[in-house]
Design a binder for these strands. Structure first.
Lengths: 214, 214
DNA sequence: ACCTGAACACCGTTCAAGT
DNA sequence: ACCTGAACACCGTTCAAGT
């Protein structure tokens, strides 16, 4: 027993298995012991690669953030597109990355910390906005605003949160008499709300931009 | 032993103790056993009042949502204010309620479920917007958009998420050379980002409203 | 009806022991 | 260096037993 001749684990392999487990069974089902079993290894082995379970989940989150595209901010810096377009495309890419792993989102809501990809996103957005003429203080706010909206939209479906049982609303909540139908159209409603909200946000920010640079 | 002559617990007392514990030590520190100890009672006693720990946390969340003011939508229905004002005041009240219990926010992100106060909020907002002339489908979206933004802004500070150690950014993230200063001004930055985002959102939604009702 | 202690099947993490 | 089993101090929840 003890140690085999070939390395059994790596950070990458552990992260991939953890993400698969989160997606398949939810964040609650990720225990170090369960994950180790999934990897064909004993529980404490993971501690050779991560100092704590939180450290491991941090790495999982950063892997997902790695899927977010930030190239549009390079194009923005090169004057090949405007800040609205860049921000819109980035927001969609960000949301798509989070929406691909809905069970992970609660673990995602803690600021960038020291996660490389989280910092990469913040750096790209802030740099892009400043390049486009936003004053630094406002660029910081715009970055925050976008993160609020995007993580909020990923974190828990709006439509899916309503019970599909009409009894729940009867009498008590007069305006919600159609709410039990929301669950069935969840994806469509969340998607269109995200797009409408993104549009509204960019329109509103454009007004603030005109104030700022005039 | 066994049972004392007078009732030791009630749902209200348990919820209050749980919320105090969340605020004081974080969501992770709320275990049924720890909470029971805090209440001077043995662990399993809680199960006479809540079916599961999740059920208990649901009640805690609903209590916090109970602090959110929705009276502005009555004023809106009575024609005493416009939808922008109502939505703005409601958003501030909502955020204030969440910001008062930052440690709880991760537990908050699951849609209304069957929580009475969550449904009360959804009902008031949707009803108010429809009264103000928003088409039903769009009113649903506006409700979702506001929830995205507000929960996103409560959920994890933006500014506070950046390490205050300048070393983290040096070289790697050129645009973040001032980011280590964010943590100190966390409250101010999050607050002003919320206000700027709310303003942008309402400005953008006003454009959509004019499209919808013209 | 409401509280208790004992019990079951789990956790995250540490650590000495193995190769 | 990297994996193991044993161990520690916890969990959430069930249940028979008490009043």
């Amino acid at each position: 027993m003890a140690r085999p001749r070939r390395r059994l684990l790596s950070r990458e392999r552990i992260v991939a298995a953890a993400l698969a487990l989160v997606d398949a069974e939810g964040l609650d089902m990720v225990s170090t012991r369960r994950l180790a079993t999934e990897l064909g290894v004993s529980g404490p082995s993971l501690y050779n690669h991560f100092t704590t379970k939180d450290d491991l989940l941090d790495a999982v989150v950063d892997t997902v953030l790695g899927e977010v595209d930030t190239d549009m901010f390079r194009a923005l810096g090169a004057g090949e597109c405007d800040w609205r377009t860049a921000l819109r495309d980035w927001a969609r890419s960000y949301r798509a990355a989070l929406a691909a792993h809905p069970n992970l989102v609660p673990a995602l809501a803690q600021g960038p910390g020291r996660r490389p990809n989280a910092l990469r996103l913040a750096d790209a957005v802030f740099g892009g906005l400043v390049d486009a003429g936003w004053p630094r203080a406002q660029a910081t706010r715009v970055g925050a605003i976008m993160r609020y909206f995007i993580t909020g939209s990923a974190l828990g479906s709006f439509a899916g949160g309503f019970p599909d049982d009409a009894e729940v609303y009867a009498g008590e909540y007069p305006h919600l008499d159609q709410a039990h139908l929301l669950a069935d159209r969840q994806r469509e409603i969340d998607e269109s709300a995200f797009e409408a909200g993104l549009q509204a946000l960019l329109d509103g920010l454009a007004l603030q931009y005109r104030q700022a640079v005039r």
